[in-house]
Design a protein around this nucleic acid. Structure first.
Lengths: 350, 350
DNA sequence: GTAATATCGGCAAGCGCTTTCAAGACGCAA
DNA sequence: TTGCGTCTTGAAAGCGCTTGCCGATATTAC
């Protein structure tokens, strides 16, 4: 039985009405179908197992419902808190979510944006993905503008500064506060695992941290800012380098929690040389609950970020792009014990 | 400048050819176009920033490219290894991936399947989602059959037994091996955090574990099999109950790693009563690398599972549904130390 | 040089749905 | 009974793309 699945025509015929009426009965949007007819159409659809052809609907309507979320990569290890937040938020709103995983290059991003335009996606959200060099950003902005010109709504979850609605979190301020807190706790000799050299999020967090140190009167030489990949594994490796270099080190700041956990693991695996080095991260991902020692980090209210993004997306497009900034706050845990109380005098290798 | 984004007509006009030729030039699939024309079409498309309207293409072609992966929920804490695997595999193949997060009920699942049919998705993969009671399964099978009747390809990643291509992993055998291993290590008094009472994966793992114990001559009373949610938080709570009940306990088996980590955290938080209780999980998620003590678990080769699923999906549809079974193996880590060497005589509360 | 064949281009007919527009059905006041 | 406004309904014109078919052109063979 290779019977094609039913079309709207089949439903209409079965209900004894025209396709126009069937369409109106099926779609809540339109008004004025006699109750009796609506009921018969719905019954026919049910009996036939009819599902409206989304593609045809989209081409007829010119737009498709739901939000498309572009992320740069799907993590292997820890859940992306932002993705979870958006999943929850869209679910609450009853909006179909389309998660697309682009590569990490700007080209991949542009391709993904164009694809979303091709699908006539209603709202497009992207997370991060901005770089310091502007060649790529220009292309991205062009792609997003084309998408908006075509009737879509854009919400960026990232650093502000682009001509689109944006939800930003205070990377710089959070990192600054973290730095001050750590210095207060008695730390002096830092290193930073800074991720991509040209990633904007990473850069903001790194610079914020450096500013915080500077304000607290602590210097950090450039060779203690290690760039590399933005992942747990890269951080593990980078922390290994730091340890091997044998520099005096009492705390490592990693620009996100996954990296911080990698660093923590390295220190644990490194034996005595890794002992006594504190670690702090950024994000406050859920997985931290199961990690010992508890990781000091900057808590970001991910669900609020996502909810705000959805709110912006569903409201009328404003004349001027809006920017919502969400602030985080430092959470001190055992990975950065108070040195003033328990002055440790271990391993000053240099 | 509110100029609508360009259509194929615009590209064709600019290149001085018909839409038919433009279409053929743009799509590798179809038949010969003179090089000169192809070049002009491509140039025109580039200049105009043309992106083909995916919806229109789908309705014209009757099908859309790419795989749709239905998952039951997006985890907050640990990445779903299966999702990561599929993301990687599709990326390798250059296939667009559409990740849809359905609710956890069978109805949600059916809705998601119908939606995929509505979008004319080429291949549909689902992870888990099967329950012991068959009312829901029937509906799901019907939905999937309709989807296939409509030309789609289905690959299930789950327990075998449904009339579709399936990639299964050996839940029962893995759990059985784990049980035997733990008994060999000297454990006797177990509890199981079993997840949903009617989840098929959970049930297989639980039963496999029980079988393994039985073969090794260890009894487990029913009140030590705790059902509940399938999450880290639920496991944390359930482990708390176990500890409070004060029963003699030297090891907890949780049916997945996230739950095991929750249990581990509870034991850590529970003070002396939690001490000395071993924990084992299932899946070998990446995050385990950053956890102390290292978690004993059953390793599953997730990337292989995903790759196999894609392979099945892209091959011709066979007359008979195929089933690939992927086996795992036990990995012993510090969360289940060898009791024969270091016999601990702690807390036998009952 | 012409005939036979292979290529390529364009016309036009869809794909399955929505939506405008005009006409029909109906209710009520005059 | 007629006239007019209101509600429903169906015919048909799209939405933007692909593709079968046929004629035009280029290529090769004789």
């Amino acid at each position: 039985m290779d019977s094609r699945s039913p079309r709207l025509v089949d439903v209409a015929r079965r209900a004894g009405v025209s396709t126009a009426t069937a369409s109106r009965a099926l779609n809540p949007t339109t008004r004025g179908v006699r109750d009796a007819n609506r009921a018969r159409v719905l019954a026919a659809a049910e009996e036939l197992g009819y599902t409206t052809n989304l593609a045809a609907q989209t081409v007829a309507r010119g737009r498709t419902r739901g939000v498309t979320l572009i992320v740069k990569a799907m993590p292997d290890d820890y859940a992306n808190p932002m993705v979870a937040g958006v999943v929850n938020a869209t679910h609450r709103e009853g909006l179909p979510l389309n998660l697309v995983v682009a590569g990490s290059g700007t080209d991949d991003l542009v391709r993904a944006i164009d694809a979303a335009r091709g699908r006539r996606a209603q709202v497009l959200m992207t997370i991060g993905g901005r770089f310091v060099d502007d060649r790529g950003t220009d292309k991205m902005v062009t792609a997003l503008e084309r998408y908006e010109a075509d009737g879509g709504r854009v919400v960026l979850i990232t650093q502000p500064g682009l001509p689109f609605d944006t939800v930003a979190y205070a990377n710089r301020e959070g990192a600054k506060e973290l730095a001050r807190t750590l210095v207060e706790l008695g730390y002096e000799h830092f290193a930073i695992l800074a991720g991509f050299a040209n990633g904007l999020t990473q850069r903001d967090r790194t610079q914020g941290f450096l500013e915080g140190l500077a304000e607290s009167g602590v210097e950090l030489s450039a060779d203690r800012v290690v760039t590399g990949d933005f992942t747990r594994d890269a951080a593990y490796a980078a922390a290994g380098d730091l340890v091997r270099r044998g520099i005096r080190l009492d705390a490592i700041f990693a620009v996100n929690d996954a990296m911080a956990l990698g660093a923590l693991s390295l220190l644990r695996d490194a034996g005595p040389r890794g002992q006594g080095v504190a670690v702090a991260g950024f994000d406050d991902i859920k997985a931290l609950r199961d990690v010992t020692p508890g990781l000091t980090t900057v808590h970001l209210p991910w669900d609020d970020v996502a909810a705000e993004a959805i709110r912006l997306a569903l409201s009328e497009r404003p004349a001027e792009p809006r920017v919502s900034v969400v602030r985080g706050h430092v959470v001190v845990r055992e990975s950065t014990p108070d040195r003033r109380m328990h002055p440790t005098a271990e391993g000053e290798t240099t």
